[in-house]
Amino acid sequence: MQRAAERVGPMPRLYGFEDQRLSRVREQERQVTREAVSRLLAGQPRSAVVSWMNAEGHRGTMGGEWTNGSLGRYLANPAVAGLERNQAGELVETGRPALITSAEFLQLEAQSGRADAAVREDDFPYLLSEGLTECGLCDHGMTGGRSNAGTPSYRCHDCGRVRVTATALEDYVGEHALAELSRPGTRAALEAAQEEMKVEAEALRVRIQDLVASRGALAEPYAEGHVGRVALAAADGTINEKLKAARSRLRYVEQIADAKLPLGTVKNLVRWWGHAPSSSKRAIIALLFDRVRVLPARARGVRSVDDRVELKWRTAPKV
């Protein structure tokens, strides 16, 4: 029995905590958890929150992207609120640190129960969720999420006036991407774009190292009394935000820079596109397009997107 346990290896830590005993909080992950919970309690669909987390570069403790299921299981763990269930199934305080409040956890439980009873959402990749879509009314980014009917969609969460069915938009963008991939010279252009991404990635790594060093440099003036606690917290918060943005951008750039480009005839490209991982298709789209701009529908119920989408190419398509 002991040998079997040794083969299994250590269990992954719970997101938000530094250790298996849940005695120390990882502050950056606690902030992500709080933001996710705030969005959920404000009424955002779980799929929209998942899209936001992945777009921001937040990953689980094993390095994978979040899904509806993984986020639901994570937030259903009472340990995130410093609680546990006793033998009677009742929630009791543990005295360990909490990422969210007990009241928030109970609200999430009630909300999750209602949502699960209403609809069982399947995971949807949202190929254009990495900041690639743009609202045609207010110019803000669009995020993926379910409509009230449960249909995967993209919606502007700033003005809230532009929404488009995800499959219709992604099919339209995919057709144009495949057409461009089949043209002579496109592969060379994509390889050049990937090289530019690699240069940006290296610059981001240097930037992150500098930010980490600058955060460490705050300790000495604070210890010597030259900087007060409030000023230290403000400076540390500013650096953390810059680190968060830089790390998120780095993960995104690395994904694009390291993507394998497809080869072959048009028929082979179409076959590849139909079975390629979402991350590979997303990378191709990001290399071809700077932004996909979505305009409002002409009338309620119109499903065609042909006259609603403006493709902003990184380079002009060949003719």
Rank of each mutant, 00 (worst) to 15 (best):
V80F: 06
E104P: 04
V8K: 15
T67D: 01
Q44E: 15
E109A: 10
L71S: 06
E18C: 13
S38V: 08
A246T: 12
L269V: 02
N86F: 07
S304P: 03
P97W: 07
L169S: 01
R308C: 02
E27V: 14
R96V: 03
V270A: 14
A257K: 00
M53Q: 06
V305S: 08
R13T: 15
R300G: 08
L181E: 02
A299I: 00
G141V: 12
L99F: 06
A177W: 07
Y126D: 05
V32Q: 02
V199Q: 14
Y252R: 15
A115Y: 05
S280G: 02
L75E: 00
A98K: 07
E109Y: 01
C138N: 05
P277N: 05
E195D: 14
A55M: 12
V309C: 03
E93I: 05
V199E: 15
G72S: 07
G43Y: 12
V302H: 05
D122K: 14
L128E: 02
K312N: 11
G113E: 15
H176T: 04
A110N: 09
G225I: 08
L311A: 02
D306S: 15
E104V: 09
G136K: 00
A276S: 09
L14R: 09
S102Y: 03
G63H: 10
R308D: 02
G113Q: 14
A231I: 08
V309K: 04
A48C: 11
A235E: 15
V37C: 04
F105M: 06
A166S: 11
P184R: 06
G9M: 11
D116M: 11
T167F: 05
G95Q: 05
F124G: 00
G216V: 00
S182F: 01
E121N: 10
D210Y: 02
R73V: 13
V199C: 07
V319F: 07
D139G: 10
R303F: 00
M1H: 14
M142Q: 06
L14Y: 07
S70R: 11
H275L: 06
L250I: 06
S47W: 10
S280C: 04
T151V: 09
S280P: 01
A193K: 09
I100P: 00
V50I: 12
L288N: 02
T101N: 08
R247L: 10
L99G: 04
Q20M: 13
